[in-house]
Simulated assay, not measured.
Amino acid sequence: MLGWAVTFLVVALIAAVLGFGGIAGTAIEIAKIIFFVAIALFLISAVIGLMRGRGPTVR
Rank of each mutant, 00 (worst) to 15 (best):
V6L: 11
L18H: 02
L2K: 12
V6S: 08
M1E: 04
I23M: 09
I23R: 02
L41R: 12
T7Y: 10
V58K: 15
V58Y: 09
S45V: 11
A15F: 03
T57W: 13
I28D: 01
I48L: 15
V11Y: 04
I48G: 01
V10K: 10
V37C: 09
I28F: 03
K32H: 04
G55Q: 13
L18M: 07
V10T: 08
A31G: 07
I48H: 05
R59E: 13
I44Q: 08
V11A: 08
M51S: 12
V47M: 14
V6A: 12
A40H: 09
T57D: 11
R59P: 05
V11C: 06
G3L: 12
I14D: 02
G53E: 11
L41T: 06
R52G: 12
A40V: 15
I30L: 12
G25V: 06
T26V: 07
L41W: 07
V47T: 13
V47K: 12
K32R: 08
A38S: 14
L2R: 11
V37I: 15
G49N: 15
G25D: 07
K32V: 09
I44D: 04
A15T: 00
T26L: 11
F20N: 01
A24I: 02
F20C: 00
G25C: 05
A46S: 11
L13D: 03
T7K: 14
G25M: 10
G19A: 06
F36E: 09
G53D: 10
G55N: 14
L41H: 05
M1G: 04
V37S: 08
A31H: 02
V47N: 06
R59Y: 10
F8S: 02
G19P: 00
A15V: 00
A24G: 01
G22W: 03
I44S: 06
P56R: 15
L41S: 09
F20H: 05
L2G: 13
P56W: 14
I39W: 11
R54Q: 13
V37M: 14
G22A: 09
M1L: 10
P56D: 14
G21L: 07
M51F: 08
A27M: 08
V17H: 04
P56Y: 13
G19K: 06
K32Q: 07
L18N: 02
W4Q: 06
A31V: 02
W4P: 00
G25S: 08
W4K: 09
A38H: 09
M51E: 07
P56T: 15
A24H: 01
F8V: 00
T7M: 14
K32F: 07
A15L: 08
A15H: 02
G55D: 12
G21A: 12
A12G: 14
L18D: 02
L18W: 04
F35P: 00
I48F: 09
M1T: 03
R59S: 10
V17F: 04
S45H: 09
F42L: 15
A40Q: 11
A15P: 00
A46Q: 14
A27C: 09
V11L: 14
F42S: 12
I14S: 03
F36K: 07
